[in-house]
Write a protein that binds this DNA or RNA. Structure first.
Lengths: 372, 372
DNA sequence: ACATTTTCTGCAAGCGGTTTCATCTTCCTC
DNA sequence: GAGGAAGATGAAACCGCTTGCAGAAAATGT
């Protein structure tokens, strides 16, 4: 029952006894455990790293002592010899944007499952800082996940020299990446609006250099092609609530019946501004967002939006990275995750008394409503 | 212009030349730099750690070579001898709760300023996991910031043996902490409601074991004491949007004219549910939230809420930790950050035709409205 | 019982830095 | 110009752990 059966000798008051250093000291090292267990440090090391290599009986003893001493191998020391740190870095442009915590959550969870710890850094949308952060991390991580990088391609290629990179929401030659199918989501949104009768819609463009913005615009064009639909583009805007409020007025003036915003934050801004002006949503204006951040479902009216598998994307990014670290030889992979339109209360057929004079007719020319 | 001027010799195909190892190899170590600069490793080490100790001329040379080789000292190796890792851990209960990314943002920024890197972990509201995460981190960090810990006091005391702890939103003997003055904020909220005529209000209680919930209840009692005010308490609830929706119905049934929710998420849930039921806010019911998360100002109607200096609290937590690491002797500090009520559109005087029959009269008995 | 494998375990050499101590220069000072 | 202080550098011993290699122990075959 006592902590240490060996210590049955009477009153070992002297704590300066070198052979059995008391635990009040600095945290126990592998040597402390080895000494107490009467084995070499090598055996202790193996007990933790490769338990199969040590005799069962010995293993038990070592583990017991280690536990008693509250010993935990130092990852720093381990990484020194193995070259692996067991850490993964994640860099996001702005933690204030709900988009990223969601990704982070998935990444964090998956990393822990794979027994990796995660370093977090917020680049504050600043490319220079982003580079600096990755380079600073490089020495302490096995690889980093770069979310929605604001960097130019050559800069990213540079960074690849410092560490293994996995990109999220960005495609770059030679690096693995997970992509969210924004274009597909946009196509769904457009189809939805066309289906319920909209003929003139606006898109609020996000940051110009953003990959996902380009993708969304591409999806917009693809979705409207061949359809009886007029699309207007505004922006580029910062992807913020405030920008959405600002943009709302522009869309009203432009006489459209529906708006698709670059992201939910902006869509929420649009909603807010329209509410302030007394303009009915979806009665007078339909609004579609992007990302399906938690608050999208909480807004009034509940926001129709394109759901991106955010948390999943974080998980997949880590998976790609871990896989690549395990098999450095194998090439890079790219994974596309599907978006999905979530229809809620902020979209509805436009009123008939549109100022634009268009009647909500079926757009599909191939569909023979009347007989041939 | 070429990468390495020294390599002007024709076709150096043989890369096995030991003296001038090409950079295609593993990352350069301190020894590589020392060799190229014709100094000992000690000098290189000093050049980075204690530049004042090396002659200016030598310093320049070493730094130049280091730069050319893209050398960066390994923190892992350094920490091995110094005992300091230069890392700080941050543990949050749930990244999905917007409360925490905000704190994280401040913490991250301040940590970087102090040249610390941050480890992030999400405990998923799970105490056991929380303990495990802290203990796992302990070896790689100099200290950890524990946000809104879900642990009991003795467990926290246990963890203090593993690493330096700073608590956010929690008070514990022997550990530094930063507290958000929830009680004060609550008092402001109550005063506000009383001032505009409410006489019967509900509080939606959060997680039972949460320190901030206890504080908020305390503030509620303190704020209502001596006032002509009836307070009802519901819960405890999970601090979620859905719980707020649920609670909304209860408050309506309880015939109160105003609700104060444990946090914004719940308040938003209340708003949403009331809107769904066609109950006017603030006409028929006033709603107050807590935290002032970004979406509070985006809701319809804009939510009156108690703003907590979230990002600041993250910064302060790191500051406390860094300070304590710098002066291990000095005792622990506790810092209280003020809350501030932000009055927006979700609160207004109650209607006169209240079912409860109370007239919105001035509550201050000392104020002589009519002549003495 | 003895030779051979097969398992375990220990020795010792690093991994990439830091730091103490000693050595060698310089630069003053008298 | 000798003695000494101050400044700059290097040699080497770690820090806590992993791992190749070799010897010891246990298991196996004959």
């Amino acid at each position: 029952m006592s902590t240490d059966p060996k210590r049955s000798a009477p009153a070992p008051a002297d704590t300066t006894d070198t052979s059995t250093r008391a635990e009040g000291d600095s945290p126990p090292s592998i040597r402390d455990v080895a000494r107490r267990a009467n084995v070499s440090v090598a055996t202790v090391s193996r007990a933790f790293a490769e338990p199969g290599l040590v005799r069962h009986e010995t293993l038990q003893r070592v583990l017991a002592i280690a536990d008693e001493l509250r010993y935990r191998p130092s990852r720093a020391a381990r990484s020194l010899t193995t070259g692996k740190t067991g850490n993964i870095g994640v860099v996001v442009p702005d933690l204030g944007n709900p988009f990223f915590p969601a990704i982070l959550k998935g990444a964090q969870a998956r990393a822990r499952e794979a027994d990796y710890a995660v370093f977090l850094a917020d680049s504050e949308e600043n490319p220079r800082l982003e580079i600096e952060l990755v380079r600073a991390m490089a020495k302490q991580v096995d690889g980093v996940v770069l979310c929605s990088s604001r960097l130019k391609e050559p800069q990213l290629q540079q960074l690849r020299r410092d560490t293994t990179l996995v990109l999220l929401n960005r495609r770059v030659r030679g690096a693995s990446g997970v992509l969210l199918d924004s274009a597909g989501g946009m196509r769904q949104a457009v189809e939805h609006l066309v289906a319920i009768g909209h003929r003139r819609i606006a898109f609020l463009s996000g940051p110009a250099q953003s990959w996902s913005n380009r993708e969304r615009r591409r999806g917009l064009r693809a979705g409207s092609r061949g359809r009886q639909l007029e699309t207007l583009e505004f922006g580029p805007f910062a992807p913020t609530f405030e920008a959405g409020q600002h943009a709302a007025d522009l869309t009203v003036a432009a006489d459209v019946t529906a708006v698709i915003a670059y992201n939910d934050l902006m869509a929420l801004g649009v909603l807010s501004r329209l509410a302030d002006r007394g303009i009915q949503v979806p009665g007078e204006m339909s609004v579609v967002g992007f990302d399906n951040i938690p608050m999208a479902g909480m807004a009034t009216p509940h926001l129709t939006t394109v759901a991106l598998p955010l948390e999943l994307s974080g998980r997949v990014a880590i998976e790609l990275l871990v896989e690549q670290l395990a098999h450095p030889g194998s090439g890079t992979h790219e994974q596309m995750l599907d978006a999905q339109l979530i229809v809620r209360a902020s979209t509805a057929p436009p009123r008939n008394d549109l100022r634009s004079g268009l009647r909500p007719v079926n757009a599909e020319p191939s569909e023979p409503t009347t007989a041939a």
